[in-house]
C-alpha cells in the first residue's frame, strides 16, 4: 500500500519534470554564433607544411603549400587559399593546377580579371588542361550572360572549340555551344561551320539542326531552313518552338495555311505560347478570318508578355482594326 503510494509519487514527478523544463526554456537553447573558421583541420595541414619546410625538396614544399591552399579553399577562405597558391607557385612556377585553383579562388572572390589571367596561365602551361577550360567556360558564360562583351564572347567560343577538340566524345555538344556563341556574336559563317561540325559529329543533334535553321532563316535561305527544321521535327516531334519557327518560315513563303497548321501544332504542344498565338492570329488576319484572330488575341490576355511581345500584340491589335 505504502510502497504503491511512493511509486505513484515518483511517477508523477517523472511526468511533470519535462513540463517544468519546457517552461524554463524561454530563451533559445543555442545562441546564434558569428561565422568562424574551424582551425583543427588546418592545424593538421600546418604540420604537414612544417615537415616539408624542414626538408629542402622545393617541389615537396610547393606541394605542401598547394595542398593546404586547397583545404583553405575547401573552407571557403579564398584569401588564405590564394596566399598558399602564391607560395606554391613561387617555389614551383610550373604547377598548372595551382594556377587553375588560384583562378578559381579569384573567381569565388569575384575578381574576374585575375581569375581569367590565372586560367590563361594554367592553359598556357598545359594546353590540354580540360578542367581549366571547363571552369573558364563556366566563368565566361556567367560574365557574358548579362553584358555581352565581344572579347569575352570570342574567348568563350574559342574555349568551346578547344573543348570540342580535347574531348572527342563531347564534340557535338561543344561545337553546338560554340555555334550558339558565334551566332550571338553575329558571325554567321563561323556559326554555320560550328553547327556543321556538330552535326557531322552527331547527325541527330536536334539543337544544332534548329539553330542552323535559324541561321538559314536569317540569311534568307528559307528552303535550307525548312530542310533542317523538318529533320529536327522528325527526331523531336514534340518540340513546340520548332513548329513555331517552321510556321513563320512558311508564312514568309506565302503558305499561310501550312503556317497556321504549324502554329496550331506548337500551341497544341505548349498552350501558353504567346509567340505562336500572335503569329497564328496574324496569319488568320491575313486569311481574313478575323473571328479566329480575335479568339487568339483574347487568349493572349491570360499570358505574361515581355515588352517585345507586348509590342507585337499591339501591332496585332492595330492590324485587327479596333484600338
Amino acid at each position: 500500500m505504502k510502497r504503491g503510494a511512493i511509486e505513484q509519487r515518483w511517477q508523477g514527478l517523472a511526468l511533470i519534470a519535462p513540463l517544468i523544463i519546457l517552461a524554463a526554456c524561454t530563451e533559445p537553447l543555442v545562441e546564434p554564433r558569428a561565422p568562424r573558421t574551424p582551425t583543427a583541420v588546418i592545424d593538421r595541414y600546418n604540420a604537414i607544411v612544417a615537415t616539408a619546410e624542414a626538408g629542402d625538396d622545393l617541389l615537396e614544399r610547393a606541394k605542401a603549400y598547394y595542398d593546404r591552399g586547397n583545404i583553405w579553399f575547401d573552407q571557403q577562405n579564398y584569401t588564405e587559399a590564394i596566399a598558399d597558391y602564391d607560395r606554391a607557385l613561387a617555389l614551383d612556377p610550373s604547377m598548372s593546377r595551382a594556377f587553375h585553383n588560384r583562378g578559381l579562388a579569384y573567381a569565388m572572390l569575384k575578381e574576374y580579371d585575375a581569375a581569367l589571367r590565372d586560367y590563361a596561365l594554367a592553359i598556357r602551361l598545359d594546353p590540354a588542361y580540360r578542367r581549366a577550360y571547363e571552369n573558364r567556360v563556366r566563368l565566361l558564360e556567367q560574365l557574358t550572360a548579362s553584358t555581352p562583351d565581344e572579347t569575352l564572347l570570342q574567348q568563350l567560343a574559342d574555349d568551346y572549340g578547344s573543348l570540342a577538340q580535347l574531348i572527342p566524345e563531347a564534340e557535338a555538344p561543344y561545337r553546338y555551344r560554340q555555334g550558339v556563341i558565334l551566332a550571338r556574336l553575329g558571325d554567321r559563317t563561323a556559326a554555320r561551320e560550328a553547327f556543321d561540325a556538330a552535326l557531322r559529329a552527331r547527325p541527330q543533334h536536334v539543337d544544332a539542326l534548329y539553330e542552323r535553321a535559324l541561321l538559314h532563316y536569317a540569311g534568307g535561305d528559307l528552303n535550307a531552313a525548312l530542310a533542317d527544321l523538318d529533320a529536327a521535327l522528325r527526331l523531336s516531334p514534340r518540340a513546340a518552338n520548332a513548329y513555331y519557327v517552321r510556321g513563320l518560315i512558311r508564312r514568309a513563303q506565302g503558305d499561310t495555311r501550312s503556317a497556321i497548321a504549324d502554329f496550331g501544332q506548337a500551341l497544341l504542344l505548349q498552350p501558353a505560347y504567346p509567340e505562336a498565338l500572335i503569329a497564328r492570329a496574324t496569319a488568320y488576319a491575313e486569311q481574313g478570318n478575323t473571328t479566329a484572330a480575335q479568339a487568339d488575341l483574347q487568349r493572349l490576355d491570360n499570358l505574361q508578355l515581355d515588352p517585345t511581345l507586348q509590342q507585337a500584340r499591339e501591332a496585332l491589335r492595330a492590324r485587327l482594326g479596333a484600338p
Partner: peptide, 30 residues
C-alpha cells in the same frame, strides 16, 4: 583529400551534355 585538387566549393560538375531522348524534347535550341 587535399590532392583531389578540384576544390569542392565549386558547383558540382554539372552534366554538361544532358542525353535527353530527342523524342522527349519539347523545346530546341538556346
Amino acid at each position: 583529400v587535399a590532392s583531389l585538387a578540384q576544390p569542392v566549393a565549386v558547383e558540382q560538375p554539372q552534366p554538361i551534355f544532358p542525353e535527353t531522348d530527342p523524342a522527349e524534347r519539347t523545346s530546341l535550341g538556346s
